[in-house]
Amino acid sequence: MSLEQFKNRNVGVQNYTTLDVGVSPTTNKAKFVQFITRAVKGELFVGLWVTGKAMFKALFQGDMHTVKYPFEKMPISPRYRAIHDMLRLLESGSYRCIGCGLCEKICISNCISMDTRYDENQRKEVSEYTINFGRCIFCGYCAEVCPELAIVHGPRYENASEQRAGFSLFEDMLTPIDKLNLQQEYDGFGAISPNADENIKQTPLAY
């Protein structure tokens, strides 16, 4: 598409079809006829039928949509950007972060602060690592830039706190060594949520 075409494209028209909604009556006689047909046709009872059916289904067929939130949680999409997790290597159990500092550099709200040192083998390791969740905007750049897939967004989304600044230490975010077998790998940017199959249904317009 050339720039000219691109600028002039009309997004609204091509693929839309207008619904047949009929014509509104203009004369008094036509209005009266419409009124009578509507009154006698029982459209009102269709409304009652729809809600009655909804109630029946909700009560007896388990079609109830309330999620009792604090007691019951919906699975969230793997693409959701919640509180970060620091992952470990599955084989050795040592943490993946190599202290490259890319996440600190790219963080647009400057909320990651880290420090590194040489360990006894003269290899770089992270000595300090904190994220201030009072500033973090959960943009996901840190997870995206990490060359080792060390920092990812975990499933914890309840991050209300009493203070504006809320620092999370490296150890808090790190997978506990005894939970290593439960560590979830990041599914990737196009991943669908685990309950996606259940959520597929006809659109309301189908009836």
């Binding site: 009655g52 909804a54 079609d63 309330t66």
Partner: peptide
């Protein structure tokens, strides 16, 4: 309760 059921909610619980 009835309104809630008709809207597929639980109502006061």
């Amino acid at each position: 309760k009835v309104l809630a059921f008709m809207q597929r909610r639980l109502g006061p619980m």
